Measured scan of single mutants.
Amino acid sequence: MASQGTKRSYEQMETDGERQNATEIRASVGKMIDGIGRFYIQMCTELKLSDYEGRLIQNSLTIERMVLSAFDERRNKYLEEHPSAGKDPKKTGGPIYKRVDRKWMRELVLYDKEEIRRIWRQANNGDDATAGLTHMMIWHSNLNDTTYQRTRALVRTGMDPRMCSLMQGSTLPRRSGAAGAAVKGVGTMVMELIRMIKRGINDRNFWRGENGRKTRSAYERMCNILKGKFQTAAQRAMMDQVRESRNPGNAEIEDLIFLARSALILRGSVAHKSCLPACVYGPAVASGYDFEKEGYSLVGIDPFKLLQNSQVYSLIRPNENPAHKSQLVWMACNSAAFEDLRVLSFIRGTKVSPRGKLSTRGVQIASNENMDAMESSTLELRSRYWAIRTRSGGNTNQQRASAGQISVQPAFSVQRNLPFDKPTIMAAFTGNTEGRTSDMRAEIIRMMEGAKPEEMSFQGRGVFELSDERAANPIVPSFDMSNEGSYFFGDNAEEYDN
């Protein structure tokens, strides 16, 4: 993207840094990872977990959730003011799984939030270390993106479920800051804005008074975040219109849905970061690795190297396929839920299948599930090659597409044709070009129609051997075009429920 120079890199967003050079960025990201790792080690000690239990991804998720809940100030305040039966607002906890007599047992633990905050700050040299908290939120978000298709949420806001490739980060909490905003897809931002506008339509006082002023500035800020994701002048001009509207209503909703559809071809720039579970960072720190000293990046080879040398386990339900569970977590670790499966298959070195073909449910185990038949197995999170994460949407291309997802959002900077089903997408653009945004709409449609099938995206960008740390010898991959490109292809993934 041309304006790259004016933006802070995501590592800076990730670490609240002012302008830093590459070495400083690597050190501050490393410091953040160190903090998460030290916190995780301490929690495993508190909970008396064995090494194996500490490497269980379900335990990692519970521990991450506990610290996120302990620092969720708004919710904590709300819980104190609106006490609900049987919930102690000062405590947080969740299921911890232990191996007892050759069987997995679930144990519900409860801790004072104050105590968890103390352990977290102690692991982070006394700081609140917001960057580390956001990092864990993005890992949870990436896992949700890989596990669930947001059909219901899309339909509720009037969008087409086939636009799911635009929904990265749709389950990120509001408090995820600049680093969170960077990884949100165009569809996620559109959905947040539509929800806001709908509230304004239904509630006369939404934009009024002292609160209304705050609401208005939040609305304009979200519009600017979305505008910054678009790469064409016409899309940005249309966002200006939406932002400046005196009284946002149905016309703005129409414009936003139009823009979301246009992003299936004229893709937005959305950041991709490899955020790993805390149970990967903990053992690495415990083994003596100093992330701050060595430096770390979320968008280069580092996460690949770390996963190459990590042992992570997962509980497996009786009829689940461990290899499929591994694929789910591998995609989440690489922030690749909406990437082209052919690119992923090449990088991973084994075939990556669409969601609907995987015999696996989510990673988390519900409290009512029976533990008797639970097994555990090693997650295979290694890769054959590594590639640089991208934040450009890439230019655009036609490809055989599917009944489910009709476009992709690249996660890796790797040369390819970008699949999208042009006739299906263009069919949504018939007729409606009147109104105050008509010239911009016409211009956007013209650009979409001009998108050429034979153009290559990320020209000359390749993948790298894991021994090639400096990215000196790019390998331009070859793809098996007979395979499906979309992950949520004609899909039956479970729906995400809060």
Rank of each mutant, 00 (worst) to 15 (best):
N417R: 05
S262I: 10
I63Y: 01
S69Q: 03
G490I: 04
L108I: 02
M331C: 14
Q364W: 03
R436L: 14
I406H: 12
A472W: 12
S3R: 00
L133T: 12
G209M: 11
N397F: 03
Q235R: 14
G5D: 13
R8G: 01
T171A: 13
S482T: 04
H324P: 12
M456K: 08
K48L: 00
A323D: 14
E64F: 09
Q231S: 01
I225K: 12
A182Q: 01
G180A: 13
S50T: 03
I425H: 11
G94S: 08
E252F: 11
I406R: 15
E369W: 11
P83C: 06
I63T: 12
R382Q: 06
D480S: 01
V29R: 00
K273W: 09
T23W: 08
A278P: 02
V312F: 03
S478M: 11
I365L: 13
R26F: 02
L344N: 08
L381W: 07
G462F: 14
F412S: 03
G187K: 14
A336H: 10
R8M: 11
T147M: 09
P474W: 05
N334A: 00
E192I: 10
V100S: 03
N202L: 01
I406L: 00
E294I: 01
D128W: 04
S402G: 00
G462Y: 03
E210K: 04
D421T: 04
D112R: 04
A263H: 09
K87S: 03
N124F: 06
N370I: 14
E107H: 03
Y97Q: 08
V183E: 14
A442D: 08
P277I: 10
M43V: 02
S367K: 06
Q415D: 02
P474G: 09
Q149C: 08
S392V: 06
A284Q: 07
G362N: 11
K77Y: 01
N432L: 13
F489N: 10
T390S: 08
R416H: 00
M159F: 08
M426W: 03
N59S: 06
M1N: 10
Q20P: 00
D16G: 14
F206D: 14
Q398G: 01
Q415S: 14
Y281H: 02
Q398D: 04
I301A: 15
A336M: 12
P277G: 05
M448K: 13
